[in-house]
Nucleic acid binder design. Structure first.
Lengths: 162, 162
DNA sequence: GTTGAAAGAAACCGATC
DNA sequence: GATCGGTTTCTTTCAAC
């Protein structure tokens, strides 16, 4: 990270995380800057990898993917190789949209997005066939209460100056 | 939904979900269409609410949010009112980026994004102070293996025509 | 940081085949 | 659906302050 974010960067990130269709001039006026420096800041945020991309979001229901399932998994083995191979497998499965390795009694959580129970069953069979797993528990989402892509950008805590 | 998605819509959605910075002309040539009809399809997908927005994605680590925590919750009460009030509370908390109501032994999963353990503790105290909860279990993410916003757009299964 | 300007690219939208 | 054309808006860059 080349430079810590200042207040203006934070404002820019908040706006772009909510809506990336605004023009640079729009954003500039909202953060209280003129277009040129605002454009340069956005460029820099992209070059620095703070902004990783711009994407369109799609309504899950509207494309027929009515079911979200959280799958909790205990690893088959506790080795680096097993972990790497499992990660590769999951990255190749498009219905798996989130995977975190956890501390605690489960090793992994997945969020899986499918059309219905039948599709999930097909996914599930494919998953357990591909990899040796010790335990798999699936919990079905009844309702999506909240799902945002905007992260809470906050100023970094003041550094102690020794 | 006014019209089912055809193969071209699906291709467009796949491209825009990966990268929304492509020009219409780009997308058009990739899906094998000319600009105008491609532009009209994108407009329609937006009007129909299939595309819900375009956002910038931000690197969680780069803005100092090093910790993701999954919080599992058993509801304090099983009433509509409790559910609604709990949902409102969570929607007002920016560090809570995902909330699903689940079937099974836990009623809710949250994904919470914070800078560190200290910040999480502050969040946790705020959460349990605000709402009466029967049980709260926090599981910490050690590693983000995968997190994509692109949903697996698939053609709808052929309808039975009776 | 600011303003202003200017080239090129895109979005937008109608008309026509 | 394709192609054309034209208006408008935005991006991007470069000056000068």
């Amino acid at each position: 990270m080349s430079r810590p974010l200042d207040h203006l960067d934070i404002k820019i990130l908040r706006l772009l995380q909510e809506n990336a269709t605004h023009s640079v001039a729009d954003i500039a006026s909202k953060v209280g800057l003129s277009s040129t420096p605002c454009w340069k800041r956005i460029q820099r945020l992209q070059m620095d990898g703070v902004i990783t991309g711009r994407v369109a979001l799609v309504d899950q229901e509207k494309i027929g993917l009515g079911l979200s399932v959280f799958v909790f998994i205990e690893a088959g083995e506790q080795t680096k190789e097993w972990q790497a191979s499992f990660a590769t497998t999951l990255r190749g499965m498009p219905e798996v949209v989130e995977v975190y390795r956890l501390a605690g009694d489960y090793d992994y959580v997945l969020r899986v997005v499918v059309a219905d129970m039948k599709s999930f069953d097909r996914f599930y069979r494919r998953l357990i066939k591909t990899t040796e797993l010790k335990n798999v528990t699936s919990r079905f989402a009844m309702e999506k209460i909240k799902a945002i892509t905007a992260l809470p950008v906050v100023p970094p805590p003041p550094q102690a100056t020794p």
